[in-house]
Computed example of a mutant assay.
Amino acid sequence: MLKLVIGNKLYSSWSLRPWLVLSHFDIPFEEEIIPLRTPESRGRMLEFSPSGKVPALVDGDVTVWESLAIIEYLAEKFPEFAIWPQNGNARAHARAVSNEMHSGFQALRQACPMHLGARFATPQITEPLQAAIDRVEDIWSEARNRFGGGQPFLYGAFSAADAMYAPVVTRFDSYQIPVREATRTYMDAVLAHLSFAAWRDAALAEPWSIPDYAAGHTLVESFV
């Protein structure tokens, strides 16, 4: 059986992405959680990932690390599932924006780390942060308008692209980022997704806490 090695569900945005794909498409797998930022974390991660980071997918003698690489591996291994959109134009667009997410949006990542256990006051919206927010909203709007077919997700049905952007949905929600009405509609669809709800419920039940993830932010509401 596949094994997905992940970090704390409360904070690990990179781990959330492939986990959502596996869960949504009902692909059997087992998970192993390695708590982040402990003295043992890196050593344990190196047992599964040469980068010393999570997530990592173990499939027999094959190991794949990095969220997007894991998702691509799953798409090749399970072609019966529409992990990427079936329409060629939509699939190309989905891959492009997913790669953009994988490599970019540093201002958003730094200003609003994923934290599913709390809601915070809106941080100062600097020019780089606003540019990142605008770009994300434009990506979501274009995908849904061109390829969504009036359905809740970016390309109609839930796909790898939605999994790649799910952590951004949580960031916008947790930090109460002002967004367009259409953006909020899409966010609500992701937050209500059964697989995401299962991840969040498990996250809130975890015994680990990393105070640094809340540092510099004004707590409005705690869920843990």
Rank of each mutant, 00 (worst) to 15 (best):
Q151P: 01
N87L: 10
L194N: 08
E100A: 09
F105K: 01
S159A: 14
V220T: 14
V168N: 10
K53N: 02
T63W: 07
S12R: 01
R95E: 09
H217A: 05
W140V: 12
M164G: 05
G156K: 08
M1E: 12
L68G: 02
N8F: 00
V64L: 04
A163T: 07
F81S: 15
E221S: 07
P211G: 13
I125A: 04
H24D: 13
P18T: 01
H102C: 12
T38R: 09
D59C: 10
I70K: 10
D138N: 11
R184Y: 10
S222C: 05
F29M: 08
F78T: 14
I83G: 06
F78H: 15
R180W: 08
R146F: 08
I33C: 13
P79D: 00
P178R: 10
H102P: 00
F48C: 10
E76T: 04
W140T: 03
L57H: 03
A189Y: 10
Q124M: 10
P211Y: 01
D61H: 11
R44L: 15
V64E: 00
V64T: 07
A203S: 12
A75T: 11
Y165H: 14
F78R: 01
A132Y: 02
F120L: 07
P50M: 09
E30M: 05
Q86H: 09
A131M: 05
W84C: 13
M101V: 06
L191F: 08
L20M: 15
F105L: 00
P152H: 04
Y165A: 03
K53A: 08
S174R: 14
A214T: 07
S15C: 14
T126L: 00
G156I: 04
K53Y: 00
F29D: 11
R37D: 08
E142L: 12
K77F: 00
V64R: 05
A143Q: 12
A160Q: 10
Q86V: 14
M101C: 13
S222H: 06
D26S: 13
T63M: 11
R91K: 15
A203Y: 07
H102L: 11
R42M: 06
D212H: 13
Q86W: 03
G117V: 05
P207D: 09
P178G: 12
